[in-house]
């Protein structure tokens, strides 16, 4: 749909009809044929001119009814064409580009719709999205057909809509948590070595029995009273979970779904999850700490902004340097023909 399209076949046919009509008029000298002749003479320029005029005045918009949706659930895309003019066209073509930015899938489908006189046409398209990611809809080119079918006038527009597709909510991690708890235990040990992963929420006066490490020395010096930091009641358990986004789309999809289900379960079990993934574009790891389920969707939304890459092992070599505090982490990746979970120890 790059260029304005001309239909030479229809033009030729019209010219033939015109000539036939002209011959009939010359032969019969009938007023009826004269009427046809007049109309056939003024129709083509009028048709093309009015089509150009209408195409420039049309207003387009794209909307996703829901900002985010789940896999396999119907998500509606609204395509709106508003015609403020008093002309009609029977055929408007919009090249709808549908793209999953995460998997870098893209293709175009041509939508045809009528342009009604001085009114708005809305088309609700039920989209079925079976792969998670960030789905972007774009229309860059529209084409309007003139009355006589000679030309499709092209116009560039730029309208977009996006929706997020998250893994299905009913997917649950059915694996054994004991395999994973091995990783969690490692985390606890690191905590014993002095690494604290809690957050300060309040400051109060010292009560005998409080840990010395919680004393707010600065404030205590100021106030001349021992003050203790009140830490957020964090779970005693935390998990670093690395999502491996390498390989084939179908494999990554199952990895993402498994990660989602696993994280969801962990959060439900009051485990703080540190979700980590590799950002190929920035060349660094991205990390999100997840305490609640609401944060999970946001984190995955951020994850979908990256692109998949080739080999996670190359990436994981950097892991110890970036996360020295970690002694182990859980890798969710595609292994032995299916998505699975693997505990990785770091020395």
């Amino acid at each position: 749909m790059k260029y304005t399209k001309i239909f030479p076949g229809r033009l030729v046919m019209y010219i033939i009809l015109y000539i036939v009509n002209l011959v009939f008029f010359i032969f019969f000298h009938s007023y009826t044929f004269l009427a046809f002749l007049i109309i056939m003479t003024i129709a083509p320029p009028l048709s093309i001119a009015s089509t150009i005029y209408v195409s420039r005045r049309l207003e387009f918009s794209l909307k996703c009814v829901m900002q985010s949706t789940r896999k396999y659930e119907l998500s509606y895309l609204k395509v709106i064409v508003n015609n403020p003019t008093y002309m009609v066209s029977l055929d408007l073509k919009e090249a709808l580009i549908c793209e999953n930015t995460f998997y870098q899938n893209k293709d175009t489908i041509i939508l045809s719709m009528p342009v009604r006189l001085h009114s708005r046409y809305e088309l609700d398209i039920p989209m079925k999205l079976s792969m998670s990611g960030n789905i972007r809809y774009r229309v860059e080119i529209v084409r309007l057909l003139d009355f006589l079918g000679f030309v499709e006038v092209r116009r560039k527009i730029d309208i977009k809509a996006e929706t997020l597709v998250l893994p299905a909510s009913e997917e649950e991690y059915k694996g054994s948590m004991s395999d994973i708890s091995e990783g969690m235990t490692e985390v606890e040990e690191t905590k014993k070595r002095g690494y604290d992963f809690s957050d300060v929420t309040d400051v109060r006066e010292y009560i005998p029995g409080d840990k010395l490490m919680n004393i707010h020395w600065k404030l205590s010096a100021k106030r001349d009273v021992l003050m203790v930091k009140e830490r957020e009641s964090m779970s005693n358990e935390q998990m670093a979970l690395f999502v491996s986004l390498d390989g084939y789309k179908e494999n990554i999809e199952s990895v993402v779904c498994l990660s989602y289900a696993l994280v969801k379960r962990l959060i439900r079990e009051n485990v703080v999850v540190r979700l980590i993934w590799w950002n190929e574009d920035l060349g660094e790891f991205e990390c999100r700490r997840l305490l609640e389920l609401e944060e999970l969707d946001e984190a995955f939304a951020d994850m979908y902004n990256v692109h998949i890459y080739e080999n996670s092992e190359d990436v994981l070599r950097h892991f110890p340097g970036i996360f020295p505090e970690l002694r182990a982490f859980v890798k969710v990746g595609y292994m032995e023909g299916e998505a699975g979970v693997e505990i990785r120890e770091l020395m």
Binding site: F28, Y31, A35, I39, A43, G149
Partner: peptide, 30 residues
Amino acid sequence: FYIGLEPDLLYMIMVVAGLIMAYVIRAGQH
């Protein structure tokens, strides 16, 4: 038409309009 007769304007409009409609709607591809 051959013998130089012309119809009433109303019927002329009907025929011409009908045929033009048929052409345009067909050209509209729907």
